[in-house]
């Protein structure tokens, strides 16, 4: 029991270029890089952009100056929860911090490029992917980023 509690939450990184969120363990290394474990760069698994990992101090600074300021929302990209019932959309990406959740959605066919129909929002979200009807909670719907079609 106790050992379970001590495990720290996995760290999530944000790619500054494409906005992809990922865990540090997922970062691929460039082939034949001589730096090995001394390398301080992380590489985005989505777009392969390399950037230095944020340090604790930088985090604090950033929070100090950017408090309450959110990045301007890209209005073509919406969370599934922002759509109206009956709207068709195309899935852009799953912005979920948990790999298990992304996998669970992926096996039902919710993957980038797939077409979704939002059938209902209450009491629980129901989306249609191909011939599969899937019930989801709003917390999960928020993490599904889509584009209207």
């Amino acid at each position: 029991m106790e050992s379970k509690l001590k495990v720290s939450a996995p760290q999530f990184l944000h790619c500054p270029l494409c906005g992809f969120e990922f865990e540090k363990q997922e970062t691929p290394c460039q082939h034949g890089c001589p730096l090995g474990r001394f390398c301080k760069l992380v590489c985005c698994p989505n777009c392969r952009y390399e950037f230095p990992e944020k340090t604790q101090g930088l985090n604090v600074l950033q929070r100090l100056f950017h408090r309450g300021r959110k990045p301007a929302p890209d209005r073509t990209l919406l969370g599934l929860h922002e759509l109206e019932e009956g709207e068709h959309s195309e899935l852009v990406c799953l912005n979920s911090s948990r790999a298990s959740r992304r996998n669970a959605l992926a096996v039902y066919g919710l993957t980038p490029g797939s077409r979704l129909i939002l059938q209902q929002k209450r009491p629980t979200f129901v989306v249609r992917v191909g011939e599969t009807e899937l019930a989801l909670e709003i917390e999960i719907a928020r993490e599904i980023l889509v584009r209207r079609v």
Binding site: R101, A104, T124, T132, E133, L134, A135, I140
Partner: peptide, 9 residues
């Protein structure tokens, strides 16, 4: 756990 449930026809 997450609530992701397939609705059978």
């Amino acid at each position: 756990s997450d609530f992701i449930l397939e609705l059978p026809p």
